[in-house]
Design a protein around this nucleic acid. Structure first.
Lengths: 332, 332
DNA sequence: CACACCCTTGCAACCGATTGCAAACCCGAC
DNA sequence: GTCGGGTTTGCAATCGGTTGCAAGGGTGTG
């Protein structure tokens, strides 16, 4: 079916090596043969078989992109950015949808079968050990949105979730909320726990604050809504830090059920600043997570690992900031 | 780095062929050698290199998944379903993000370089000619969400957009809306045009109807909002068929700006029935598109093409139905 | 016990490329 | 015209597998 090196060589009247060399950067070919080859290649519509060459070069330019988060709208943005960033650098994303699994074994095996050059684990709900499994199998890996502190074996890119927790608590407190709550993501997500920890740390510095907390079953609209309905039934706090924008939006929906106005009756601050949070009907006050920078840094790191697979692991942590919109009462 | 056939053969004390055969379905190996090989393989942690074997077999199990729609939340569901459906059948999605491009040339070349077994073009905003480019390059292709009528050269899976247009018009008319409008997707999307055509066809059967139409710049929240604001400025119709749920949600946002209640002051019916449309705060009346069936059928078709690449092209069209929620006035 | 037959096995060629090495070439200088 | 230098080129081995073919081994039958 497809045209091979050999046919091009035959047509151009040169050896196969010559053809190979015209298609590899920096190989020595005379302008004359190069043009002969290029002409023949164009005529036959030849383009080199990336997989065959990967056999000898050991590079496939395939990057495994692993996630379990196909229900949070923020991940559309994440996939968009990742696929574009990889493409721009000539890398190809090979997607693994982990939704039904929590074990790394299968994905590791599969990605090794396809000889991916590296893997990106894009999830804050997977433990550091998950990413480490790739590392242990000899697959360079970066854990995007991962927890940095306890996983020095793997590159991590993301935010300081503990600091975000503190930031949220400070924000609520500075606006005069006294009874505040944390409505976090799933308990087994490092992001949910770290944000919780930071939140509590800050609370302890303010003896006037009263605090409650709960954890949703997932980073999803339904889970956020559910949890807030529960809170409302039990008697809610005055202001909440929801561990994620989609949880916040679920919570807002619960408030609206009860005829409560966010920002007036009850305060909500989210985290992510996803596209939807800017919609007029949502208008969510939230902590901005610099997705674009995080993803660019992740792909940068991938590229650097391609050059030096033994690269010493590193954490790249980006600062977040509060985006003021309409779901918290104004500062006094 | 990784373990090869040869090493396993050496350890097991058999030939390379024997090892290869134990790992290929239906090859003749005695139970005795099989177990020797399996033991050796387990000991070394061997798993076969999929790319190397693709060289001789001509099969990579790689499927190109091409889309340009990374801003419509419905695509999270689409990606989720696609990646899972492919995985379940042992196929691997290789993603192409087309956002910055409309030309097939690059993606075709790239996917051929990686010897994908087939490609799925998942977009209603790409022309049939786009999918055809893959076909012409010898890559089996199915166009999901494509237009069936005029592209007999390529497999198409989706819905009857013309019929959906009619259905929407009927729905509006049957609820007593007299001045109705079509707020469609981008003019160059076949889906937008087909829905328009059906809408108008139906309108012509009802002389009492007055109709307006407009096309948004994209299938996006902002575009929908924008277009509806425009409509409101010019004097709106009583009920609208928005060509897509995300356009509808944008339009709802515009209504809310003007203090208008959907379903009371102005009717809106969307198309897709995406997760978000079920949210209490959205509660969008819409035409359900059976995404899951469409995607399963697409992957079925891919599998069948793997068996018979010359398979005669076929359109698989799924019926849609109206889901009644809160954004149209009740039937009289 | 001999024979025929089928199942296993290893050899070796091949898939489509890359690359070290040595031979061939080109050019200018002497 | 010859020689020395660097550049271009082709040969052949290699990457990690698969597979047609023929030889080898085992079984059952007469």
């Amino acid at each position: 079916m497809s045209v091979t090196l050999k046919e091009v060589a035959a047509l151009a009247g040169v050896s196969r090596s010559a053809v190979s060399r015209t298609f590899t950067e920096g190989a020595s070919v005379s302008p004359k043969t190069r043009s002969k080859v290029e002409k023949a290649a164009a005529e036959l519509g030849y383009s080199p078989n990336a997989l065959a060459s990967s056999l000898t070069t050991g590079r496939t330019k395939l990057i495994g992109l692993i996630s379990n988060n196909f229900h949070n709208p923020i991940f559309l943005e994440v996939f968009d950015q990742f696929t574009r960033a990889l493409q721009e650098r000539g890398l190809r994303p090979l997607i693994v949808n982990l939704t039904d699994e929590t074990e790394p074994t299968n994905s590791v095996r599969m990605l090794r079968q396809y000889s991916v050059d590296a893997a990106i684990v894009a999830s804050s709900t997977l433990p550091p050990s998950f990413a480490k499994a790739f590392h242990d199998a000899g697959v360079p890996v970066v854990h995007t949105f991962g927890r940095s502190a306890t996983s020095p074996e793997v590159h991590v890119v993301g935010i300081d979730n503990v600091e975000c927790g503190r930031m949220a608590a400070r924000e609520l407190s500075s606006r005069g909320y006294r009874r505040i709550g944390y409505l976090g993501g799933p308990k087994d997500a490092t992001s949910a726990m770290d944000r919780y920890r930071g939140f509590m740390e800050e609370v302890e510095k303010h003896p006037e604050l009263e605090v409650t907390h709960c954890f949703a079953g997932a980073y999803s609209f339904e889970a956020g809504r559910e949890e807030m309905l529960q809170q409302l039934a039990e008697g809610p706090a005055e202001g909440y830090f929801c561990g994620d924008d989609i949880l916040s939006i679920g919570a807002l929906s619960a408030l609206s059920d009860h005829g409560l106005k966010p920002g007036k009756d009850i305060g909500i601050i989210g985290l992510n600043d996803m596209e939807m949070s800017r919609w007029e009907s949502v208008n969510l006050t939230t902590i901005h997570q610099p997705i674009k920078q995080i993803i660019t840094a992740s792909v940068d790191l991938v590229e650097e690992m391609l050059k030096d697979p033994e690269r010493y692991p590193e954490a790249r942590i980006f600062p977040c900031r509060v985006i003021e919109r309409g779901t918290l009462r104004p500062r006094p």
